[in-house]
Design a protein around this nucleic acid. Sequence first.
DNA 1: CTGAAAGCGCTTACAG
DNA 2: CTGAAAGCGCTTACAG
Lengths: 352, 352
Amino acid sequence: MIKSEEIAKIVGVSRSTVSRVINNYPNVSEDTRKKVLEAIEEYKYRPNAYARTLAGKRSETIGVFFVIDEAPESQRRLYHNDFFTTYLDAIIDIANSKGYYVLVQTITCNEEYEKIDKAFCEQRVDGGILIGTRKDSLKYIRDESICQHMVMVDIDPELVPTHFMEQGLVSVINSKDYQAVYQAVNYLIENGHEKIGFIKGLEKTLSAFTRYDGYLAAIRDNGLSFCKDYILEGDFNQEKARKEMEKAIQKGTLPTAYICANDYMAIAAIECLGEHKIRVPEDVSFIGFDNTQTGELMQPKLTTLSPDFFAMSKKSVEIIHQHLIDNKKMNAENIFEYDVELIKRGSVRKIN
Amino acid sequence: MIKSEEIAKIVGVSRSTVSRVINNYPNVSEDTRKKVLEAIEEYKYRPNAYARTLAGKRSETIGVFFVIDEAPESQRRLYHNDFFTTYLDAIIDIANSKGYYVLVQTITCNEEYEKIDKAFCEQRVDGGILIGTRKDSLKYIRDESICQHMVMVDIDPELVPTHFMEQGLVSVINSKDYQAVYQAVNYLIENGHEKIGFIKGLEKTLSAFTRYDGYLAAIRDNGLSFCKDYILEGDFNQEKARKEMEKAIQKGTLPTAYICANDYMAIAAIECLGEHKIRVPEDVSFIGFDNTQTGELMQPKLTTLSPDFFAMSKKSVEIIHQHLIDNKKMNAENIFEYDVELIKRGSVRKIN
DNA sequence: CTGAAAGCGCTTACAG
DNA sequence: CTGAAAGCGCTTACAG
């Protein structure tokens, strides 16, 4: 591997000058710059990233940390989650296109929040994106270290310590889940539904809470009576949703429509109903959340709430990029909320 | 951020000794080791990864390079591909559990193969996994640089230059797609099918070629006559599969069963048939490839060929891990092939 | 078992 | 506009 000193020797300049050319500094004569550039090209010289970083440059790397609850033996932990994969995909694309490397890590238990600190302390990453944040995430993050360029997705801004926010060290990106579900309830009401149920997500997450909250508010504001039997517990996974639906069927306490905290649970619930010859949307209508591919391919196609994952992940990268470029902290404006679209398909029926 | 020199001062030893403790070298007295460890713990000292690498240690990072054809604007490039996401997920999990970091990059055109070189040259990665390799990939990789610890997934070993293989620098991991499709054809024949069609994958990839090859061989070996009309062109994506199926329907040249180079195309084709009131499996039987979640959730559930992605990606990481630990090259044994399982579900019908 | 010194390959003030 | 020197925070022979 050729190094800057050798390039310098070849061209007949000092290492400093080679460095200036590499870093595109202005104080180099055009003639010298050209010669150096040619040598670099000819000898395929590539500056050692680690030496550069040690000497004061950035690592040009963004860390992506996924908080995952499932056991490490599970073969489909990231994969299983459309939210994660869409997000990760977009982050990689956008970060790559801006010249950043992406370092991905999973966090599967509280001790592993340590990994975030570690990545920052070891200077492996310039900024980080924390995804799938649990409510209690923040207390596992040390004040001093992490507080550089951090974007948190799906976390209640209230939970971010004030000094983090004030110093503009942490940004928060959320989708407007409350409004989304509120709108979904209204849509069902417009279609004649009055008995509207809800399948809940994993309690610990903001989105689970907010989605349910939107449901409750909409029910109340529309003067519908709250019925406990219409609420099914859930954790975003299919298994639990299926069991809860099974119970509801046995009890015979089905509403005419369900809103589900995600598509996967909707799909599982619909399957379960199908096994009992209860049909969607003829007997029960369904609205999911996340706009997964499967929801689009199934029959009937699943009506769902679609967050703009791409815009959100793009924003995540851009925030870090801006921080790094300007080398300054965020302004007051460090909470971003994105609209969620109601995608009307075949799983909701108009009733009388 | 505290550094080794300060730890040394606190404990009253030299930096060398601190370094020995960090690296778990044997030549340190138990007493000293203990004291150093305590100071490290107390002051939350973390060695700077970049300094360590520069001084001769490994970067402890594995690069994952995805070759993707779709345009950068596409919002579901990685995500869209179950093969990629499953693979990536498993790699991250396994690599993380062994203490490696994972750097992910996408390669969307020939020029971007450069990225692999760059990551290695800049010493950002110790080893690499190249996924979704096209037939002509290898010529874009420079001999000298890349030739360290590289695992290639889904590439014809014949195409790897002999000196790469001989020096044990590159390993190849494939699934037994030929045998898989061969078996699938037999399964269809057992179920009474004689008119068996095939929807092809993207020509440039090994798996597309091998899967089709397995089909051709099985047709021939079973004495069935090859019918050109039964073969639909494809590129692993739904759009093309749908169009081709539409054409076949218009021509009226449908076989009684199709094997598809992946599940996505099967799903698209089935949808297309459905729009023409042609039912699966009543009128046409289907076998997919990849065992996607969608295939499992649709009605009827898709019969499919399921590669062991998890085992394959695990092996990828383990190979690199072994290389790095032993610091030696691979033996003659550097081609690995994994069985593919036929998962029998509802999309194949027994006919007379 | 331990320490002083050189070195990893860059960047960055400092001088000129 | 350019170069010599110091420094980034580690590791690794070398001596003892």
